[in-house]
Design a protein around this nucleic acid. Structure first.
Lengths: 217, 217
DNA sequence: TTGACACTCTAACACCGTTAGGGGCACTCT
DNA sequence: AGAGTGCCCCTAACGGTGTTAGAGTGTCAA
């Protein structure tokens, strides 16, 4: 396989699943490509740029199949699906959320996704300004949730993951924090699909409520 | 000053503002404490544990002054204020969001904050389960937003911050992405207070809408 | 044939987190 | 008084990191 910056990023992304972000070294990536580490610097400025390229790949993976909502599907479903795709793209790589969070992604697919978000919301009755200021809330929630989710299930902790349910449950003092103890099942279930779906619904409902509030004046 | 794990974390947090997360080394922290790097390992198991301690300090900074809502103040305002405090605590340290995101925080103040969130929402008419599954959405949005915000204004980029407004504005093709171009002002203003407040309002409105939907059956 | 360019190499630098093991200092116990 | 026992800090060093300098190799064009 020809070596170029995208091939490097793709290899790095594959290795990421095995070794995690902290174990991902230039030497390892080079070895997997059948090459020595300094060679990578001919194709890539530095490691940060490589991480940006990896983030771009993940982002594109989520956004490339994005299409305008089909007739009959609501903007709520469309927006929620887009958030689900993004979360899935992050979850499908170890430490995917950490890679994506706060890295610079500049790719046509992203611009297309933004444009599509704006158009879909505007066509659904939102002001363009409402759309532009509103849809990032969905993304920010999705990123925040997935970062936390992936951190809790991280394999970085050895045998003693401090987020293990029984460990957390035994830690809270039911005398002083009765509601926390009582709701522990719900709180612990926050990671995973159910927790994400609940939060996603809240944000989408919030978008609708913000619009309705404006419409009422 | 006596050296213990908290003093180390406090020093590290102060140095963080000068050198950033990537520049924060054990040797530097030790030097600032008038000590050599291996000494730190007497007080702290490893660097990750130190980062966790720093995250705890930031989190506590936001949560320690948390009090039950005063009579006459709504749960909306109370919850929004709590999110604002958390964001401020992260913003008050360089890379603060990255430090906090996905690190293990186990401190009494945190438990108290959770309990207070649950109680406030339940007293306002939410089911305990609704409260437990709903308030994390606010936190996740806050973390996601602040990570992105802090990444965009990062000093890690030298003279050429790719997020510089004029740079971003000149990059989008107004022919193919007309709405994006038209809304560029709103999109660029997403970082900063205004963007955060708008998203925060959406999430809070969403919580209310979710409750009302349940009440209606 | 010569030159230029694209690409990879070896060697090395400065620095990182972390461990091993030794020493001094302040106590307590005999 | 002397011996022992932690506590706390040290020096030295290990194996690793990202990254640079500079020399080579092959390919293709003039």
């Amino acid at each position: 396989m020809k070596i170029n910056s995208e091939a490097i990023a793709r290899t790095a992304l594959r290795l990421l699943d095995d070794v995690g972000l902290d174990g991902l070294t230039m030497r390892l990536i080079a070895q997997d490509l059948g090459v020595r580490a300094p060679t990578l610097y001919w194709h890539v400025k530095n490691k940060q740029e490589l991480l940006d390229a990896m983030a771009t790949l993940v982002y594109v993976e989520a956004a490339e199949r994005l299409e305008p909502p089909r007739d009959g599907s609501s903007w709520e479903d469309w927006l929620a699906d887009w958030a689900r795709h993004l979360r899935q793209a992050m979850l499908s790589h170890r430490d995917g959320a950490r890679v994506l969070a706060g890295t610079y992604v500049n790719h046509e697919t992203v611009h297309r996704a933004v444009e599509l978000n704006l158009r879909t919301l505007r066509d659904a009755g939102f002001t363009l300004s409402e759309a532009a200021r509103g849809f990032p809330a969905v993304l920010h929630f999705t990123i925040g949730h997935t970062i936390e989710e992936q951190a809790h299930t991280s394999a970085a902790y050895g045998d003693d993951n401090p987020y293990a349910p029984e460990r957390l449950a035994s830690m809270i003092d039911a005398e002083r924090f009765p509601l926390t103890a009582q709701a522990s099942t719900d709180l612990l279930g926050m990671d995973g699909d159910a927790g994400f779906e609940y939060g996603l619904r809240i944000v989408v409902l919030g978008l609708r409520a913000a619009r309705e509030e404006r419409e009422r004046g």
